[in-house]
Amino acid sequence: MTILAALLFLMLVGAIIAVETTNLLSAVISVGAVGFLLSIAFLFLGAPDIAITQLVVEILCLVILIRATISRDLTAVSGEREFFGMVVGVALVVLVALAGIAAFEQFPPFGEPVMARFPDDAPSATYLAEGLDRTGAANIVTAVILDFRAYDTLGEATVLFCAILGALALMRRRARRQRDGDETEEGDAA
């Protein structure tokens, strides 16, 4: 509990640095620090699957951010939006925070899972008790994502495919060549 609070506090500090710093490279590295601390927090929360995934995804995320954006010529960031936009933004954040605090009253106290509210018919309890017999997988998380709820994983694969397809379509150059005519042609030849 104390360790978790300390980790969360460090994550908060890293997030504030990432949002507020004027150097883009330090912002990206601070996000990396937040992600690695999150991975450690997952280990303390009894989720080693997620900890491994978060760790490697964070590495890849850093590589993509640094490789694709930081090598541009400008790395310094200047200022915030004008005063009115800033006031509206802060008001929105305060509103969302108040709504979140109101929602937390419905949450179970920390350390008590949601499935404990339905002691007889919670789906998670069924997965835990019968997962090994019904699927044969010792890792119940894998049993859930690939057997009980494989539709989720199918949807996830579709979303990932669409995201990659979108990135591909955004980065290709042939469409621009048709629209811009000759200008991009010489760019290709160069």
Binding site: L60, V114, I145, T153, M171
Partner: peptide, 28 residues
Amino acid sequence: VDPLPQALVLTSIVIGLGVLAMMVAICI
């Protein structure tokens, strides 16, 4: 601990990476 949120978050993390790649492409 509850395995169901873990399964959801596992997919959510990978989707987040794909979405981040797409956002970076839009930035470029």
